[in-house]
Design a protein around this nucleic acid. Structure first.
Lengths: 174, 174
DNA sequence: TCCGTATGTGAAACTGAGTGTCACTGTAGG
DNA sequence: CCTACAGTGACACTCAGTTTCACATACGGA
């Protein structure tokens, strides 16, 4: 699998040809399928953002935005509960590879319009999200990242849920 | 100038050879100087992060972290006051070019350790910043970005300072 | 003045990612 | 049986970024 190759040799050392060979397909097919080398690792990230936005829309209307965001992020940390070891390895690979780090940042950046729009809908506004909603959506993702970073720094010993709650608490309810 | 070429033909269309020719140097020299094509546009971003961190350290000790961050960001928006038209054009170019957008995100991401450390020092802690400090540093940058985005969406008609204050208010003091 | 040495520049070859095109193959539907 | 189409592979191409070598100019000491 691609992930193992990356972990063993480092993301930069593994060429697309290596990956294609490992997958048993041609270089053409590999690139047609994944688009880029980064997406062979981060391919599922876009979908996760959509799932968080859905979860956000599903939160009860009376709930405050900050609380709703916190609860919606449960969807995002699900994989960490399901398979902590794999998640830790993946997180480390990304953190230690500038190209992956940048690409993940970019993908998460793409989550924000959907999150901000979900907040606006919850508030009953049909138009564009207010600046405060953008900021809260962004800040929630920062909380997620800060929590995951601390979690991986602790080799997975700290509790991710606790870290996430701490992170959210640091910005207080709006 | 490189910026004009990018604006006219689009970032992707302009090759490094074009840029080198426009600058009157060889391709080698151009790449040696800037490192990457993106850095021909975003070269000064790293330094700006350092300047914000300095400004943060210079804030009075009694000031709350959130207020200190807000004040420190005055340094970051200075260029927008100095030359709004140029800043608007630059912001648009970056926003409309995925590669530049990603690279800027990455650079800003690199500001956060310095900001978080500055917050930790202000608090008298010699060790690593607390997760709350990381989150607040990150959120402050989100506020900056949200304000600048809204500002550029309004063609520079909205007041950047007001937008930034609004953004900061949306997360309330910790 | 002459001789190193360092620094800036250019030329060129090379690697590797991503794109586009074309041909081949199997498969589903008529 | 024939056609249409989706999946695949082969190949050529562009371009970014790296590396290496060569040259030229400048600086400091003998």
């Amino acid at each position: 699998m691609a992930f193992e190759l990356f972990r063993r040799d480092g993301f930069e050392k593994v060429t697309v040809d290596d990956l294609a060979a490992a997958a048993g397909v041609s270089r053409s097919t590999f690139l047609r399928y994944f688009g880029t080398k980064e997406d062979a690792v981060l391919g599922t990230a876009d979908a996760r953002g959509e799932r968080v936005a859905e979860a956000l829309r599903a939160r009860p209307a009376h709930e405050g935005e900050w609380t709703a965001l916190r609860q919606a992020l449960e969807v995002a940390i699900e994989p960490y509960h399901q398979d902590p070891a794999a998640s830790l390895a993946m997180t480390r690979l990304i953190r230690d590879t500038p190209a992956l780090c940048a690409r993940q940042l970019e993908k998460q950046h793409g989550w924000r319009p959907a999150l901000a729009r979900a907040l606006a809908e919850r508030a009953g506004s049909a138009g564009a999200p207010a600046i405060g909603q953008w900021v809260r959506a962004s800040a929630a993702l920062d909380c997620l990242n800060a929590a995951v970073d601390h979690w991986s720094d602790s080799d997975g010993r700290f509790d991710l849920v606790t870290l996430l709650d701490e992170a959210f608490a640091a910005l207080g309810p709006s």
